[in-house]
Amino acid sequence: MPKLISAGRLMFAIGMLGLAFICILAQDFIFGRPPALPAELIGMAPFLGYVGAGIVAVSALAILVNHKYAAYGALVIGLLILISALFRQVPSFASQWLSALKSLFMVGGTIIIAATYAGEQRALKTLSEKNWDVLIYTGCVFLASFFIAGGYSHFLYAEFVIGFIPAYIPFHAFFTYFCAICLFAGGIGILIPGTRRLAALLSGIMVFGWFLLLHIPRFFANMNDPSDRMGLCESFAFAGFFFALTGISERKK
């Protein structure tokens, strides 16, 4: 599955570059969609946005060109998102739980992308296979947490999800609950080694389907909507997480 790993890296890097550009437009580091900074710190938002976006862009470019430090680039992106989540989302977790879990999902994805370089890049060869297994499973836990929470939110906010689906797709209620079940199944499936490869592949196909059928049309319908811009880049990168995980699982098998 080397092609899936390459595709996953490419999709991740392009998605991160898109999100970095959105941060520059927003003048804030908004990976994971954190709440606004407190009034006394709001002046720091442009600095965080520009510096964070610059670091993410350089790291993503390292992955695009397969630089010898590409794996570190993925981990740096994950670290920035984690720090942002700890300071901006965890304190308000009761009201920001889904966004906070999305940030952890993105951190998990960066771990998976970094793990695709295990055995390839000299600096990473110091980690044993057992250590990489632990890191990969940690990434899977983060991915699964958001998927399971996302499935739950499809039931909890069913009316919103139904309204989010474009009019040209029929049976809105059916697909809302069907996707909820798929999210549950995908989250649980990637936690189980025996089903991880298939669950990751099907999850990647599902998320890429959302990119094509939901996020592209919504983006072109209103290109000035920040949420739809982020949804376009996020869904593309998220599908890359799962394709990379599929490739890793196949390689280990």
Rank of each mutant, 00 (worst) to 15 (best):
K3F: 07
I5N: 04
L10A: 06
I14K: 03
L19N: 00
L19Q: 09
I22L: 15
C23I: 07
I24K: 11
I24E: 11
D28I: 07
I30D: 09
P38R: 08
A39F: 01
F47M: 10
F47K: 02
L48G: 06
Y50L: 10
Y50P: 09
V51Q: 02
G54P: 13
G54L: 13
I55S: 06
I55C: 07
I55H: 01
A57S: 07
N66Y: 06
N66G: 06
N66E: 13
H67C: 02
Y69K: 15
A70I: 06
V76W: 00
L80Y: 04
F87M: 11
W97A: 09
S99E: 13
A100Y: 12
F105A: 04
G108F: 05
G109H: 00
G109N: 01
T110R: 04
T110E: 03
I111N: 01
I112H: 01
I112D: 00
A114H: 09
T116M: 05
T116S: 13
T116A: 02
Y117E: 06
G119K: 03
E120T: 09
E120D: 13
E120W: 05
Q121T: 12
L127I: 15
D133Y: 02
V134A: 08
T138W: 13
T138E: 08
C140T: 12
F142K: 05
A149K: 02
H154C: 07
A158S: 15
A158K: 09
A158M: 02
E159G: 04
E159H: 01
V161S: 04
I169V: 15
H172W: 00
Y177R: 09
Y177A: 14
A180V: 12
I181H: 05
C182P: 12
F184A: 13
F184Q: 14
P193C: 05
T195D: 04
R197D: 10
R197V: 13
R197T: 10
R197A: 14
L198F: 11
A200Q: 09
A200W: 02
L201M: 11
I205C: 12
M206K: 03
F208A: 08
F208C: 12
L213W: 08
A221I: 08
N224R: 10
S227Y: 11
R229T: 03
S235Q: 14
A237P: 03
A237M: 10
F238M: 14
A239C: 09
F241Y: 12
F243S: 03
L245Y: 02
I248E: 05
R251V: 07
